[in-house]
Nucleic acid binder design. Structure first.
Length: 230
DNA sequence: GCGACAG
DNA sequence: ATCTTGTCGC
């Protein structure tokens, strides 16, 4: 377990945070396909909080993309860096996520985030932001449609429908299990939307949520609990 | 002005 | 995110 460091000049206000998004947005790469599903490494990152104690715990779990076996994992604990504000989630999660990613002992490959990338009020969600800061290919897989519109995808696993901001497709609702509520996939950095959906399907052989986020979620919660019993 | 709103 | 027990179903 390592310690979270809040970067110098980290935004302190919502206005500053939005200005950072507006500047970094230009660095997102959308025209690379990204790694082929089922090859190399796939890494899940997630964060758990205790706002009462001002404590944050993050986890990064690296899986072998073809077997989904855990290859490496790391956690980071520290102070909360930003309050939760819809549209500014990245400022709350990224310092902890970066610390956990830095502590992992092997190349992360594709990084799967809990939340959104392109599907964001300013088109620069958590997955986009993390991708720009690390240079890694990233995607976002969210559990809710946020403020976006969508029709229900057909019932079979693998069915999709457009996630829309007006008439712009910012992501896809993707059914990962027959007849179960879909997940919401969007592109982060250096990955294409169809490829992001293919990765998500490859990571959901059994459960609605990707193995990466399930593993990372369990690990960061555990790290947060250990913070109490010490 | 009010409500909604990733995690 | 987090607070929280059992329960219905594959």
């Amino acid at each position: 377990m390592t310690t979270v460091r809040i970067p110098e000049g980290w935004p302190a206000t919502e206005e500053q945070a939005r200005a950072v998004q507006d500047e970094l947005r230009a660095r997102v790469i959308l025209d690379e396909p990204g790694p082929p599903p089922g090859t190399g490494h796939v890494t899940g990152v997630d964060v758990a909080y205790d706002d009462e104690r001002d404590v944050v715990a993050a986890a990064a779990v690296v899986l072998d993309a073809s077997s989904l076996a855990v290859v490496a994992e790391a956690t980071a604990v520290g102070r909360v860096s930003f309050p939760y504000v819809p549209g500014l989630l990245a400022f709350r999660e990224i310092p902890a996520v970066l610390a956990a990613l830095d502590a992992v002992a092997c190349p992360p490959g594709l990084v799967v985030c809990d939340g959104y990338g392109l599907a964001h009020p300013r088109r620069f969600g958590l997955a986009s932001h993390l991708g720009v800061l690390t240079g890694l290919p990233t995607i976002g897989v969210a559990k809710n449609p946020f403020t976006f519109e969508h029709d229900a995808p057909a019932a079979p696993r693998g069915s999709t429908s457009a996630l829309l901001a007006g008439s712009e497709e910012v992501g896809r609702a993707l059914r990962t299990r027959d007849g179960v509520k879909p997940v919401f996939v969007s592109v982060g950095h250096r990955v294409t939307l169809p490829n992001a959906c293919a990765h998500t399907l490859a990571l959901t052989p059994r459960y609605r949520l990707p193995e990466t986020t399930r593993r990372a979620d369990a690990l960061c919660r555990q790290a947060l609990r250990q913070t109490y019993s010490v």
